[in-house]
Design a protein around this nucleic acid. Sequence first.
DNA 1: TATGAATGAGCCTTCATTCAT
DNA 2: AATGAATGAAGGCTCATTCAT
Lengths: 216, 216, 216, 216
Amino acid sequence: MERVDTRDTKSRLMEAAGRVFSEKGFKTATVRDICRLAGANVAAVHYHFGDKAGLYKALLDEAFELGLKRYPPAMGLADDAPAEKRLFAFVHSFLLRMLGDGRDAWCGKLMAMELNEPTPALDHLVERYITPMSRRLRRIAADLLADGTKPDDDRAFLCAMSIAGQCQHIFRNRAVIDKLSPDFKTDVEDVESLARHIAEFSLCALRGMSHAKRGY
Amino acid sequence: MERVDTRDTKSRLMEAAGRVFSEKGFKTATVRDICRLAGANVAAVHYHFGDKAGLYKALLDEAFELGLKRYPPAMGLADDAPAEKRLFAFVHSFLLRMLGDGRDAWCGKLMAMELNEPTPALDHLVERYITPMSRRLRRIAADLLADGTKPDDDRAFLCAMSIAGQCQHIFRNRAVIDKLSPDFKTDVEDVESLARHIAEFSLCALRGMSHAKRGY
Amino acid sequence: MERVDTRDTKSRLMEAAGRVFSEKGFKTATVRDICRLAGANVAAVHYHFGDKAGLYKALLDEAFELGLKRYPPAMGLADDAPAEKRLFAFVHSFLLRMLGDGRDAWCGKLMAMELNEPTPALDHLVERYITPMSRRLRRIAADLLADGTKPDDDRAFLCAMSIAGQCQHIFRNRAVIDKLSPDFKTDVEDVESLARHIAEFSLCALRGMSHAKRGY
Amino acid sequence: MERVDTRDTKSRLMEAAGRVFSEKGFKTATVRDICRLAGANVAAVHYHFGDKAGLYKALLDEAFELGLKRYPPAMGLADDAPAEKRLFAFVHSFLLRMLGDGRDAWCGKLMAMELNEPTPALDHLVERYITPMSRRLRRIAADLLADGTKPDDDRAFLCAMSIAGQCQHIFRNRAVIDKLSPDFKTDVEDVESLARHIAEFSLCALRGMSHAKRGY
DNA sequence: TATGAATGAGCCTTCATTCAT
DNA sequence: AATGAATGAAGGCTCATTCAT
């Protein structure tokens, strides 16, 4: 069998696994598919990663690691930058990670799938990646509320969820959105305008909430 | 084996499938599990529904039908009720459908799963259930923007997504939220306060957006 | 595929498993081999017996059950028959079980293998079959020692082992014996003379031991 | 990884293989287990011994060689020593070889396994080790029968088997014996008393048989 | 002499599905 | 209308073995 790809088997396996897992999910994806795509033997997965779950775990970790390195939530901003700018940076980087193109297209999909149907790998991810991001977002929300709310307050937590929810939505409902509004694009170039909308929507919300509360 | 449940096999199969599919997903769920839970024979599924996919499809349809009947997006409001009230009703019913308890607990979960990883059954669902809901939400958003935005404008579409995204978020990230904030409850009694937050957040956002736009 | 054997699949599976397991051992034997020999599908084993171990267990149980039914240790003798006769009956039935021919040829082999390399199935066998046999043999030994030794004494236990050991020996070392003494036959018709030797050897031993003890 | 054991790989491989093979059997034991225990690479086995079977064969040979060197059947007795003493020496050395402790614990186990389920390696073992031992034992039996029986007579052969069978029994049925009589110990210090029983039992048998024969 | 990496065959098991009744 | 039995196609995993260095 001709070896087309000259990288080592482990790398090719990761790449292939990324594509297959992100497309089919952990359970549906088969080791055989991954290996075929990677041009590797079935046993290679177990040699390098122990088992299917081990490969999946390694992959998830790399997905988060890579995503956060390529698009850090601060996007180069200083910690004391205006909260408005930090909000936009957070949202924009979030979307870029989720909707990333090319080689890393599967990162976001993989991350979303794991959040949705958690495997035992989730614990580590929450601890290492998600907790810091959550904290950062709650901080931004608290700063923008400007009414004395602390990052650890339930109020900040709820607002952080409102923001994160908007970021995930397009990604999670792509198929439906395509059908509802076929002209709506989610290519990389459109990500920025999408980020602007979410940031604006959230900013207005937070500012409005800091002025008054109203019941229904 | 005593037959405790006197409903016909088909009903019991649906009920069991609802629980199992919503818990494990289409692929991971097994026909055997479903039949065991329903107290039916393995072959019964194929007798009544043709095959596994047929059962899933029938179930999805019922899930939407039932969900929308129990918790209609209007929640009894007239079409010309104030937009604020319609917004809250929409959000509240959305959450109730998704986080519903007891027998219908699986409805929301099933719906979310299908949106996330669409099967061929999606087309029908979009056409029959989702399009009307989307239209209703865009209408609410347009009304609240109060700046001449029409329901079919991109602006209304984006805002509708912002609202729907918030509604789905808690549901889709339950595992992570449980870890980040173990005290955060999503029981039925908490759904209303959650709905209030989302409605308030969105209302403030829409009102704020109608006054000014700002760039970054 | 033509169905040559009209018995039900489960029976054919047992028969085939008996042959294969007794020939290759639990680990080496493959489910595929067994199914091929039984003219059944691979999945049939798991349908009828749960898994490979389940089939093995069922088989072992049947082997003991069948063996003890065909060749009961008492061989029809009353409980108060002379100990000499009971000894011969015990030895003879033991050998017949182990060296059985035809359809049940694998019974003895299987039993010996399990004793030698126990699997988790052993517990049940010891409790149900082996303990009563051991007790019976210790009783015979105690009776023949005729020096007040009780069946539960170590002395009786040691003698019982001496007898059982002789019975197992030919069976366990068949390959070596064939090489050492090619004329030595272990066909069914020779079993009786072999039983006579072992019974005589043991009888002389027990009688001799009851008269005197000597050290070395 | 620090090399604790400074012997060459080949030695360490033999040692490890001894432990693993004797514990799990040829088929169940894995090359990986052996290599891990030996602190060697998986490929080392094939480098030094050709393949798994080659290692097993080399090991068997060493087991017999070592065992017979450590515990020779004569135990230092002259060939013309009293038959009683030669009998005890034979039995005692046999048991020591089989139940040996420490580094050589696996020798006996390995030997027994090979006798029970012969591999192609058996021929050589019979020729080189077993035949002389068998001859020696038949000679002892013939001497003790003291009725003109020759070592090559069937009568002597049967008696030799009766003796050898007793020696193997404890070893082959250790698991069952542990369950039947948990207090029965087979530690090294108990071997001598066990040997005394077998020698006494056999001696009485042979003496008794030389006086009279009885049928059943 | 020795090794990390890779391979292909094969194993047990599971699953959706169908068959005969 | 319903079922127990049986099937064939995979799937994950393990193993002895070989390759390239």
